[in-house]
């Protein structure tokens, strides 16, 4: 598939602070490419550099196979951006805002009208077209923000944390919308610090920390990079030291913690991890409650690589 965005060795410094440290990204046509990282990891800086809004110190950026520069208007016309903060005019109605931003890209009057209506339909704001932004709830405002960014039917859509401070219902609608845009042919770059969202919609993921890509691949590839294969949580009312130590010594167990009547075991890849533990507990007459087993998450990937939680 064609390369849509290629970022090579990007370096951005703010005085002594290195915001991007030789960042490399490759986004292919049709991808929903997730940039996952904690706040301050450099996601937004990377996006602003990609869009030629920010000067950078080193590296190169290509979009649609051409070098991206501030005056690359032929590239810009095919890009849509949905910013972290809502970027609309308070004095214009929902309809007028979408129409205005669409008219920055499209000249034909009838085409603008058609695309504006399609964007309104897409984000389901039909009942609010005459509303001013200040009258909209947070979720509706985010949808307006999205409509303003995608009305001109861009080939590449960049969404920078579009679900921050959004209620779960609106969040789901936004995520469904992104997947629909992708199905309609748009390539998506999606930044977030919510691993669940990235895990849910992204085909490829780059995990960023301190301005560097620390891991990238599909979610399965990323999870395969770490030693944890399974997380087992067992509710035990009284777990003695002997029991804990015995489980710790079992093959494939990586770590064990007992806290608040929950025994949490991280085990490596392999079969029958849970069965072995349950068998031991039964043999030793240890009463157990709920048993939960989970696959590792992207947070575990991040934790294992960086030694800290994604939300730190």
């Amino acid at each position: 598939m064609n390369m849509i965005v290629k970022v090579d060795g990007l370096v951005k410094r703010y005085d002594k602070l290195v915001a991007l440290d030789h960042l490399n990204l490759e986004v292919r046509e049709g991808d929903i490419y997730g940039l996952l990282g904690p706040n301050g990891s450099g996601k937004t800086t990377a996006i602003n550099c990609i869009l030629s809004l920010l000067k950078y110190d080193k590296g190169s950026i290509e979009i649609f196979g051409k070098p991206m520069k501030p005056d690359s208007y032929d590239i810009k016309k095919d890009i849509g951006i949905i910013m972290q903060n809502v970027a609309v005019f308070d004095e214009l109605t929902v309809y007028e805002n979408i129409e205005y931003f669409c008219s920055l890209y499209i000249k034909d009057k009838a085409e603008i009208k058609r695309l504006t209506q399609e964007a309104i339909d897409f984000v389901s704001l039909n009942d609010y077209i005459k509303f001013y932004p200040k009258k909209l709830s947070g979720g509706l405002l985010r949808r307006l923000n999205i409509a303003c960014g995608i009305a001109h039917k861009p080939k590449l859509i960049i969404l920078d944390e579009p679900t921050v401070a959004v209620d779960p219902q609106s969040r789901n609608k936004i995520l469904e919308g992104i997947m629909k845009l992708n199905e309609e042919g748009a390539t998506i770059i999606y930044t977030s610090h919510y691993m669940e969202e990235v895990e849910k919609i992204c085909s490829d993921i780059a995990i960023i920390d301190k301005g560097r890509v620390i891991a990238k691949g599909t979610k399965d590839e990323l999870k395969a990079m770490i030693s944890t294969g399974e997380k087992i949580s067992i509710e035990i009312y009284q777990a003695g030291d002997e029991t804990i130590e015995h489980i710790r010594s079992m093959p494939n167990v990586i770590s064990i913690e007992y806290d608040n009547e929950i025994l949490e075991i991280k085990s490596g890849r392999g079969k029958n991890n849970l069965v072995s533990v349950l068998h031991y507990l039964e043999e030793n007459n240890v009463n157990i409650g709920r048993v939960i087993t989970e696959q590792p998450t992207l947070n575990d990937v991040f934790l294992e690589i960086t030694g800290k939680e994604l939300r730190d």
Binding site: Y73, I79, I81, V86, Y105
Partner: peptide, 10 residues
């Protein structure tokens, strides 16, 4: 923020 959005436009 609106300035950023129009700056990205063609």
């Amino acid at each position: 923020i609106t300035g950023a959005r129009v700056s990205i436009s063609p």
